[in-house]
């Protein structure tokens, strides 16, 4: 069988803020009634993470849940566990109105690490990233430069960014350029 690789091939650009390919991530797009107990329960079961409030995300290592829209959840699990998680979801939600699909190889994931990570993103997205407004655990789908991307703060100095695989390289270069340009000291 062919060996799975990320679009970014493990690239890292170190500097004031480090941009890092997150490596292979298992991702499942789950659409359905996010208010239903069955959906909440299976999300918690496959990730071990508490069900997030709207516009937020939570993670434990490589497992996590990201609130994408009022009817969509991004379920993150270790890459090797995707098929197992997907079949767990199918058996738990069988007969209800839902859709779940493995999108692991359709997305790119990267990390931004450093005290200035907030500024690096703020320069690229039309989002209020002031510390009083955008906090650890907050999740936002928006755009970075010219492409759609989602990002959230894992902790005070780490952003996790998810974008389509086809624009992964653009996104990575954009973040690296923003990091290289240095701080703007607005926060």
């Amino acid at each position: 069988m062919s060996e799975p690789v990320t679009e970014l091939g493990g690239k890292v650009v170190e500097g004031w803020v480090t941009v890092r390919d997150a490596g292979l991530c298992g991702m499942i797009t789950l659409r359905g009634d996010l208010e239903s107990k069955a959906v909440k329960d299976i999300c918690k079961k496959v990730t071990g993470v508490a069900f997030p409030k709207p516009l937020s995300a939570g993670a434990d290592g490589r497992s996590g849940l990201c609130w994408m829209s009022p009817d969509e959840m991004l379920v993150m699990v270790p890459y090797a566990d995707v098929q197992m998680a997907l079949s767990d979801i199918h058996s738990a939600l069988q007969g209800t109105h839902y859709a779940a699909e493995n999108v692991s190889d359709a997305r790119s994931v990267m990390f931004l690490e450093g005290a200035g990570a907030r500024e690096v993103v703020a320069k690229l997205a039309p989002v209020d990233l002031h510390p009083d407004h955008f906090k650890v655990g907050d999740f936002r789908r928006s755009r970075l430069g010219q492409v759609a991307a989602a990002f959230w703060m894992r902790d005070e100095e780490t952003f996790e960014i998810v974008c389509f695989r086809s624009v992964g390289d653009y996104c990575f270069s954009l973040l690296s350029a923003s990091a290289e340009a240095g701080p703007v000291s607005v926060f």
Binding site: M68, S69, P70, E72, R140, R141, S142, R143, A148
Partner: peptide, 8 residues
């Protein structure tokens, strides 16, 4: 349409 956000 909230095209780059929730898509609604």
């Amino acid at each position: 349409r909230h095209a780059y956000g929730c898509g609604k």
